[in-house]
């Protein structure tokens, strides 16, 4: 009996994954119907990202270092955060846009589908963010290249960085989902997103030692954006802490996403439609 239940569960998981991939393909196809718009958006996204990095680069060019962190090290923090955010927004953009579903009552339609809400929600906003990938990848390649050349880091830094980007993406997704869940009570979440996503991610592009103790503590625990770039960079770039950073990052990202999922489930059980 138990074996049969386990087989059924595996089969339904396989079906969900298959369905998820089909929905993603549909979403990509619909976007590619407007090729000029796609190219236009990609170019502008890259320019926006570049201008954001220029702002940081200019500060570093003017002052040399930020609290002992060189331009390449801060470039690394910026690039890891950009790529982790890109990963989160590629797969989880609709979680970030949940307010629209709540305000316009679109969530009610998703609730009537014979699928978990997250599964029908996530593929809708799937988008390929070439602009961000190109720009984040270029800054990462530049900063890693310079540090490899100077002997500050070894080639091991590359797989370690990829690991940090993946766990970072998961952490950002968890923060985004937990923030969005508050919308089941408050409906409007943009203000909260400004604090937990926009401001927090901007803060974590710089070394956390810039901030007062209470703020860096907050960015490592309550809104753990410090786990995305800063914590792995301490080991990968500066040889501080130890190899234990990686299992800790893996465990922390699993923990935050599980907590966020539980919160989401609880939140959705309390959801009341805004009506139409």
């Amino acid at each position: 009996m138990n074996e049969r239940r386990a087989t059924d569960r595996q089969a339904s998981l396989r079906n969900y994954i298959k369905l998820y991939l089909i929905l993603i393909r549909t979403s990509v196809r619909s976007r590619m119907q407007y090729r000029f718009n796609f190219a236009f958006g990609t170019v502008l996204a890259a320019i926006i990202q570049l201008s954001e990095f220029l702002m940081i680069a200019i500060v570093l060019a003017k002052f040399g270092a930020v609290r002992g962190w060189t331009m390449h090290e801060v470039g690394y923090l910026f690039a890891v955060m950009t790529l982790a955010k890109t990963l989160y927004r590629t797969f989880g953009n609709e979680v970030h846009n949940l307010e629209r579903y709540l305000v316009e009552g679109e969530l009610d339609q998703l609730l009537t589908k014979p699928l978990p809400v997250l599964l029908s929600l996530l593929p809708r906003g799937f988008r390929i963010m070439f602009g961000e990938v190109i720009q984040g990848g270029a800054i990462l390649a530049w900063s890693l290249g310079q540090m490899l050349h100077s002997g500050q880091i070894s080639w091991w830094a590359i797989p370690q960085t990829i690991f940090a980007i993946v766990t970072g993406g998961v952490v950002l997704f968890a923060i985004g989902m937990a923030t969005a869940t508050c919308g089941f009570w408050t409906t409007r979440i943009s203000m909260l997103q400004n604090m937990t996503e926009d401001a927090a991610q901007t803060a974590a592009r710089y070394p956390l030692t810039l901030y007062p103790g209470w703020m860096s503590g907050l960015l490592l625990t309550a809104i753990p954006v410090g786990l995305v770039g800063y914590l792995p960079a301490l080991y990968i770039l500066r040889g501080e802490l130890g190899l234990w950073v990686f299992p800790v990052l893996a465990a922390a990202s699993c923990l935050v996403v599980l907590l966020a999922l539980r919160f989401w489930k609880f939140g959705i059980s309390k959801y009341q439609s805004t009506g139409s």
Binding site: V59, F63, A65, V66, R67, S190, M191, L192, N194, M195, D198, A199, T202, A203, Y206, T209, L210, Y211, P212, M215
Partner: peptide, 22 residues
């Protein structure tokens, strides 16, 4: 909503305070 905006401002101010130390 203003608190979110002021938080952003405070964040940028912290960066300049940190830079101003060195």
């Amino acid at each position: 909503h203003n608190f979110a905006s002021a938080a952003f401002g405070y964040l940028y101010a912290c960066i300049w305070i940190g830079l101003g130390r060195d």
